[in-house]
Amino acid sequence: MIIYIAALVVAVVITTALIAVFSKKLLSSIIAMGLVSLGVSGLFFFLQAPDVAITEAAIGAGLSTAIFVIALKKVKKGESEDEE
C-alpha cells in the first residue's frame, strides 16, 4: 500500500519540478518549487528519515517559498520604478 502512495508522491514531485522549470510565470515556478519540497519531505518520511523530513518541510516548503515570493515582489517593484 505504502509503495503506491510513494509512487503517487514521486509523480507529483516530478510533475511540479517540470512545472517549476518550464513555467512562464515566475510566481507559479516558486509555488511549484514549494510543492516539490513538500513532496520530497513526504518521501523522506517514507524513507524513515523524519528528521530530514521535518527540516525540509519547515525550511524548504515553508520559509524559502515565502522568501522567494518576497524577493520576487521586491524585484518587480524595482523594475516598475525604473520604467517610470
Binding site: D51, I54, T55, A58, I59, G62, L63
Partner: peptide, 12 residues
Amino acid sequence: PGGGFPGGAVIA
C-alpha cells in the same frame, strides 16, 4: 525527530 534547525525555522 527534529532539533534546533527545524525548530528555529518553525519559529521564523
